[in-house]
């Protein structure tokens, strides 16, 4: 594992215009990602947690180049050179970044046999001289993820959700990527299958020297996969820390809220946990700190000034409770 920087995201913004009328004038924006700074080091898995509308999936898709950023930059380093993946890049660079999707039912083309889905990327890359070698390679990969070789000649509808997700994993790792974005890969699977897929992902990561960008709403899985966890709220990262630390000593009030809302078996559920409000829509982002409408510690400054992500106690937190402005205020009074 080396610690070279793989991704450098600077002030990334992804806005989706809301259009109306016959000439489709833009009447507003959905600010899915609204100013994200992030560095990912090679071999260091990052988990991103957040609720729906937090922009975590958009962030993932922008990182792999499926969505063009509205502002800011995603720089991807490949062999010492920097690339922007939404532009046209050499095929080996393009294929070194892959994505595994949430819905196993829409991630495979229903009209193609598994072999035809899997060979597409390999043929573009011209990785094999003969068809036989390629089939052999794909068969070995299927066996590696716990499927059978003969599944190559079946259609997606013959498989369960868990099996499809394994096939998607084969498609992603077949091109020997360095970096994989995983968008809630287990959230639509049965509980008994979910653990298998998580184990498989972790095994592959170690064996193939991959780096994961793991998107999830489940904090426990986020911790299990990622060395670090980033918490997103309404298009912004509110806290990043080593996963153990983030869970054991959360700083940001939203992180605390999120953790307290986790329901797990085998714990006492006697007392009722207070969890207020609902996230506002990303079309009308509140002024100042985005979380102030739900925050139990909201102060005057929170409505006016948006807090920066600053280092505090080993973590990076965007909250006035820990910011310089706040410290100044305290000093004044």
């Amino acid at each position: 594992m080396n610690n070279e920087e793989l991704l450098n995201i600077k002030d990334l913004k992804v806005y989706f215009p809301i259009r109306k009328g016959i000439f489709l004038q833009t009447v507003g924006y959905i600010k899915a990602v609204d100013g994200v700074d992030l560095q990912i080091k090679s071999g260091e898995n990052l988990s991103v947690v957040g609720e729906s509308g937090s922009g975590k999936t958009t962030l993932g898709k922008t990182i792999v180049g499926l969505i063009k950023p509205t502002g800011g930059k995603v720089a991807y380093n490949y062999n010492g050179k920097s690339f922007e993946l939404f532009r046209s890049v050499p095929i080996n660079v393009r294929q070194s970044v892959q994505m595994i999707f949430q819905d196993p039912f829409s991630s495979l083309n229903p009209r193609l046999k598994i072999v035809d889905t899997l060979k597409e990327a390999l043929e573009i890359r011209k990785m094999f001289r003969t068809k036989r070698e390629m089939i052999d390679y794909l068969g070995t990969l299927l066996e590696k993820v716990g499927l059978k070789r003969e599944y190559l000649y079946r259609y997606p509808h013959e498989f369960s959700g868990g099996q499809r997700q394994r096939i998607s994993i084969v498609r992603a790792i077949s091109v020997k990527p360095k970096f994989i974005v995983l968008d809630e890969p287990t959230s639509s699977l049965d509980v008994s299958v979910q653990a298998q897929v998580i184990n498989l992902l972790k095994e592959l990561q170690r064996e193939l020297n991959l780096t994961y960008f793991f998107i999830t709403h489940n904090v426990a899985i986020a911790k299990y996969i990622g060395q670090k966890i980033a918490v997103m709220y309404l298009g912004k990262i509110v806290e990043i820390n080593d996963s153990e630390n983030l869970i054991n000593s959360p700083f940001h009030p939203y992180t605390r809220l999120l953790l307290s809302a986790v329901v797990e078996p085998k714990i006492e559920h006697e007392k009722e946990i207070k969890v207020g409000g609902e996230p506002p829509s990303p079309v009308n982002v509140p002024s100042g700190c985005r979380f102030h409408t739900r925050c139990p510690f909201a102060m005057k400054i929170c409505e006016e000034v948006e807090p920066d992500l600053v280092e505090y106690g080993g973590a990076f937190v965007a909250c006035h409770l820990y910011s310089k402005e706040r410290t100044k205020q305290i000093e004044k009074s």
Partner: peptide
């Protein structure tokens, strides 16, 4: 089922317990 669910206190290094096969 109970032991295959990762919780906040699950160790990062161990393997998750899992039920083999599919439903």
């Amino acid at each position: 089922l109970v032991s295959s669910i990762p919780t906040l206190s699950t160790s990062r290094t161990g393997k998750l317990h899992s039920i083999p096969g599919n439903v």
